[in-house]
């Protein structure tokens, strides 16, 4: 029995069966399995999924025909999994048939705002059209609004988005993302956005244990592993790194692992001779200990913030 076959004439609906048929449980399970921590986010996603499922059933039972507002706002510091969750959200919405295709289009200010008069509208329109049938994810949405420059074209993009969020509700879902504080200021100056967004989800920072778990997960996915010593050193590394500037949660962990892999490769080549399979997979304590974090740490001036920049201004 598919969702559509639950007809209006029916007075009772087997919820378990509909839930099973909607195929969202595997996605939610996957979300639980693949994403470390983020307990409040997972709870909210579950709540939203249930709400949407019930709304669909209500509609089919003739109780209400109003489509629930689906636009969302994800706030949180960099590397807390906003984009990853957005991809899953798109899948959930697709399975519940709130979007027809379930793809995710990621856009930032550069993709939406033009450089000269008359450039913004077609650019925004192009992205919006690409996102139709799916989810439009606007990263660091507050950059669209630049109050210091009253002739900024961002306002034009905002107006267009508001219009689309209202008129094309059946065609696409918009998710805004960014730092919580800046997002709040953004909403204060653009109340139209706030009222059109139904779900605000805050992504908490990861704890040290969670970061460690993330590191282990990433390594095992890439067929690498820590030994006991390097695990300890990496935990120390994380404890130090968290306090240093430009820390970007899971993304910093990934970068640290990438650099450790680099050092491991260098070490193995220098060492030469015969290498065992186990050695190829192992990250040594030394590979981590060479990091700048242990030598007084990263300062904003000499760091390479390529991937860890929390905001565009610093890049």
């Amino acid at each position: 029995m598919s969702l559509e076959e639950v007809t209006v004439e029916k007075t009772s609906i087997d919820l378990d069966e509909v839930y099973r048929e909607s195929n969202i449980q595997p996605i939610l399970d996957e979300l639980d399995r693949d994403l470390v921590g983020l307990a409040p986010v997972k709870t909210r996603i579950r709540e939203i999924a249930s709400l949407l499922l019930i709304a669909r059933l209500r509609e089919q039972s003739g109780l209400s025909t109003e489509r629930p507002t689906l636009h969302m706002c994800f706030t949180g510091r960099p590397g807390t999994g906003k984009t990853t969750v957005a991809v899953r959200m798109a899948k959930i919405l697709h399975h519940l048939r709130y979007v027809r295709k379930g793809h995710l289009v990621v856009a930032t200010r550069d993709d939406l705002v033009g450089q000269y008069v008359g450039h913004t509208a077609p650019k925004t329109k192009e992205i919006v059209k690409k996102a139709m049938g799916g989810v439009l994810f606007i990263d660091e949405a507050y950059y669209l609004y630049r109050p210091e420059n009253e002739r900024d074209y961002g306002q034009e993009a905002i107006e267009m988005l508001l219009q689309v969020m209202e008129n094309q509700r059946d065609d696409l879902v918009v998710i805004l993302a960014g730092y919580k504080e800046r997002m709040d200021t953004f909403f204060q100056s653009n109340p139209g956005f706030r009222s059109r967004i139904a779900h605000h989800i805050d992504f908490p920072d990861f704890s040290l244990n969670e970061l460690m778990e993330i590191a282990e997960l990433m390594l095992s996915q890439q067929m690498y592993s820590f030994d006991d010593e390097s695990r300890k050193v990496f935990a120390e590394y994380l404890a130090l790194r968290v306090q240093q500037p430009l820390f970007a949660n899971a993304r910093s962990v990934r970068n640290a692992i990438d650099r450790a892999k680099l050092r491991q490769a260098g070490r193995l080549i220098r060492q030469g001779g015969v290498v065992s399979r186990e050695e190829l997979a192992r990250i040594d304590a030394d590979d981590i200990r060479q990091s700048r974090v242990f030598q007084g740490g990263i300062t904003t001036a000499d760091s390479n913030p390529a991937n860890e920049t929390p905001g565009r201004l610093l890049s």
């Binding site: 027809r100 059209k129 139709m132 049938g133 799916g134 094309q168």
Partner: peptide
Amino acid sequence: MKDPAAVMF
């Protein structure tokens, strides 16, 4: 484009 909605628009 992924969806006919864009063309209808």
